[in-house]
Amino acid sequence: MYFNAKNLTGGYGEVKVIEDCNFNVNRGEIVSILGPNGAGKSSAMKAILGMLKLDSGKVILDGTDISNFNTQDRIKLGISFVPQVNNIFSELTVKENLEMGAFTSSDNIEDKIEEMYDLFPAIKEKNQQFAGELSGGQRQQVAIARALMNNPSILMLDEPTAGVSPVVMQEIFEHIIRIKEKNIAILMVEQNASQALKISDRGYILVTGQNTYQGTGDDLLNDQEIRKTFLGG
């Protein structure tokens, strides 16, 4: 596997939010982390990014143990993250948002920006507008585009479809599929479980900080028990 998170256990002091969690994802694969509210999905993301103190467990990227790296160094290695809220620079223009995404890379940014405009045509025409003035769906596109700017090998998304309309949700999922085609590993946390599983290659279901189930998207979708408990029938 390209990316492995092994036996992650951690939390805030005595309280363990995640216990013995395992995730792995390959390039060109979409993996969803699902589960009820407060199951520790976002904490698992933070742990992978180095923003949550780990008591035990390892994070391995392309064979390198990065467990002791700080967030900034992990980002430089090609892990990109789109937070659930406040995921754009609202007072910067769309174009500047993208430039900030490529802050650490020294490549030609202009080409990369053009690539993003091809991927997200909707934001191209708004490139001189402040990102804060855009609609919810467009903001989400800016947020994802910003995260893609530094050529990540793995893209992490925290509930990319939270608070958007079903139409926009479909649109975002389509974008995510197209990103996958660029041979990027995608790890996302989702609330809209059944829709997310439809586009996912594999999924993990987290309950009270532990992964209880895992399997391919179809397997999970077709499992009666899981359907009943987590996917709402």
Partner: peptide, 17 residues
């Protein structure tokens, strides 16, 4: 620009490196 970005959204600025 990175200064403005940091002033606007510190967490995201850190995530952008």
């Amino acid at each position: 620009k990175s200064m403005r970005a940091y002033s606007n959204n510190e967490d995201l600025a850190l995530l952008s490196g």
